[in-house]
């Protein structure tokens, strides 16, 4: 028989190894229009993997289902990890709302979420971010830290890379795997529903 370890009953005090989190500055989202009819929506390609291919299908969806909405597909000026004031300014001047995506990697999902918050809160452009479902917790963590915890976000399945046009169209016409609601219904709602004050 093994003798009990007497030390194991002794309670000890140890130090917490975690660092100190940053302070969060809360932000407010831009006012939303009641309808997208006659409005211009910018589709912003973050340039990671095949983001632009998914956005082409979003553009096709608007042409088919909401033909009164104008869409303009643009790519970020450079690497997604850098801020892009030139593009944001163009959208502010010429657009009414924006859809940015796709956040589908560990660095581009935080970047896309951050750019969406920037467009919405700094440039006053109602914006929704598209991400793949694998990154939902990453995105929630970033939007919370970014001061807009409820930043409008819609998810599609993973992966986007290498998928055919038909497969990506099915993503766009399908359900958000996180909420179970239609992807494009959520996108339209995100751009037309006021966010509660921070």
């Amino acid at each position: 028989m093994i003798a009990p370890d007497r030390k194991s009953d002794l309670k000890i005090t140890v130090l917490n190894p975690m660092g100190y989190p940053p302070e969060i500055t809360r932000k407010s989202a831009a006012p939303r229009p009641e309808s997208l009819e006659g409005k211009t929506i910018y589709l912003v390609d973050a340039r990671f993997d095949d983001s632009i291919e998914l956005l082409k299908q979003v553009q096709a969806w608007f042409a088919e289902h909401m033909s009164g909405v104008k869409t303009k597909l643009v790519s970020m000026s450079a690497y997604y990890g850098h801020d892009d004031p030139k593009t944001w300014e163009e959208i502010k001047q010429n657009g009414d709302a924006a859809i940015i995506g796709v956040g589908h990697c560990s660095t581009c999902a935080p970047a896309v979420a951050t750019h969406a918050i920037t467009l919405d809160t700094k440039y006053g452009v109602p914006t929704v971010a598209l991400h793949t479902e694998k990154f939902d917790k990453v995105v929630k963590s970033v939007t919370k830290m970014g001061g807009l915890a409820d930043a409008p976000t819609v998810y599609v399945p993973m992966p986007v890379m290498g998928k055919s046009a038909d497969e990506l169209r099915a993503y766009v016409n399908g359900l958000d795997p996180i909420t179970g609601r239609p992807v494009m219904l959520e996108v339209v709602e995100a751009l037309t529903t006021q966010l509660s004050a921070a």
């Binding site: 130090l15 917490n16 190894p17 975690m18 660092g19 100190y20 989190p21 940053p22 969060i24 990890g81 560990s106 660095t107 935080p110 970047a111 979420a113 951050t114 963590s141 970033v142 830290m145 970014g146």
Partner: peptide, 23 residues
Amino acid sequence: MQPTANRGLWEYTVEKVAVNAVM
């Protein structure tokens, strides 16, 4: 430090580094 850009920078002291060094 932060795990990835845009996640938010956490701060740490000499003592906090020592805690992890002991571990």
